[in-house]
């Protein structure tokens, strides 16, 4: 609870500020949209949180989103696959991607940054080749399949809880249980803090690291799938661009340390919400222009990290 207090207060402050300054912020449509965006991006954030907790990083998330987001409609519309088998193969591909990253990082001892930087380029390049740089989507077909990304559980006639957000909550609960209630979660935190000590305590650290990259890639794939179902159009050259950075930013806002060994799922979800809220605020408040998005997100992130570090150092001094 202590760890997420800061980010929770940030969320509330920005929420209230936007409600006062912006137009139509509290409207049902806008609130639903916020939840939907949080749901979509939150999946990526939770994925990368697992990797960050082990002390690693995954820069290929955006490209995996692109691969799946373009690949699934390509299989369905151009190759005539059923949606079910297209999704299945996408997940298998994501599993292999994660295993591959984990293998290179643990067995060949390559640096996560380098491995996933190469992947960032490779998967996007491969997708562009596969789709011949053509925009991919479902057109007007497969309405029921697309509902996973577009529908909502209705609450009032203007506001509903979007499916992607529901999926995020389900994934978040599973991830929370995994991290806090299973031995594997404990192992992840332990090896993120001190891999050598964890290994000497009999933990198969390689296997745990590989697992974290698999989780990350599979959640990126799930996110990519929901993004395309939701948006219905994916341009291979820019679909999912920078999404890894949004995910990493959300995880860091939510209390993950890139040094490893630290992080909470609730924090990451709130961190994602803060990022989406900031975007929303920039759209709705008149005197904030859309080109200021990166500027504002960057500043908020920096302030959050500085505040976190200062509090930590003070706590250390008190002890």
């Amino acid at each position: 609870m202590k760890k997420i207090k800061g980010i929770l207060i940030t969320l509330i402050v920005i929420y209230v500020a936007t409600a006062i300054l912006g137009e139509n912020f509290l409207g049902g449509y806008n609130q639903g949209k916020l939840l939907e965006r949080t749901g979509l991006y939150g999946l990526l954030g939770i994925g990368v949180a697992f990797v960050i907790i082990t002390g690693g990083i995954d820069l290929s998330i955006g490209s995996v989103v692109c691969l799946v987001g373009c690949g699934v409609p390509w299989l369905v519309m151009r190759q005539g696959w059923s949606p079910g088998s297209a999704v299945a193969i996408a997940m298998v591909v994501a599993l292999c991607v994660g295993l591959w990253h984990g293998f290179l990082i643990t067995k060949l001892k390559l640096q996560p940054f380098v491995v996933t930087l190469c992947s960032l380029l490779i998967y996007r390049g491969a997708t562009r080749g596969l789709a011949e740089d053509q925009s991919q989507g479902f057109g007007g077909e497969h309405e029921t399949f697309r509902q996973w990304g577009t529908e909502a559980i209705e609450v009032t006639d203007k506001f509903g809880i979007p499916y992607p957000f529901v999926i995020l909550i389900v994934v978040a609960v599973i991830a929370w249980v995994f991290l806090n209630k299973t031995i594997w979660g404990r192992y992840l935190f332990a090896l993120g803090n001190n891999e050598e000590a964890a290994r000497l305590s009999g933990i198969n650290t390689d296997r745990m690291v590989i697992l974290s990259y698999v989780i990350c890639s599979m959640l990126a794939a799930l996110g990519g799938l929901l993004f395309i179902l939701n948006g219905n159009s994916a341009q291979p050259s820019d679909f999912g661009n920078f999404y890894e950075l949004y995910a990493i930013a959300a995880a860091v806002l939510g209390g993950c340390s890139l040094r490893g060994g630290e992080g909470t799922i609730v924090g990451v979800v709130i961190g994602t919400a803060v990022m989406q809220l900031l975007k929303n605020m920039i759209n709705l408040v008149d005197w904030l222009k859309s080109h200021m998005e990166f500027l504002i997100v960057g500043i908020v992130l920096l302030v959050a990290v500085i505040a976190d570090e200062m509090i930590k150092q003070r706590v250390r001094k008190l002890k």
Binding site: I183, R186, Y187, A190, E196, A197, G202, I203, G261, E262
Partner: peptide, 21 residues
């Protein structure tokens, strides 16, 4: 500090680490 302990984990978590399974 480098190999025996996980410094930023609780006493409890350190003690039980090897016998968790």
């Amino acid at each position: 500090k480098g190999q025996g302990l996980i410094l930023d984990m609780a006493v409890k978590d350190n003690m039980s680490l090897a016998s968790l399974r």
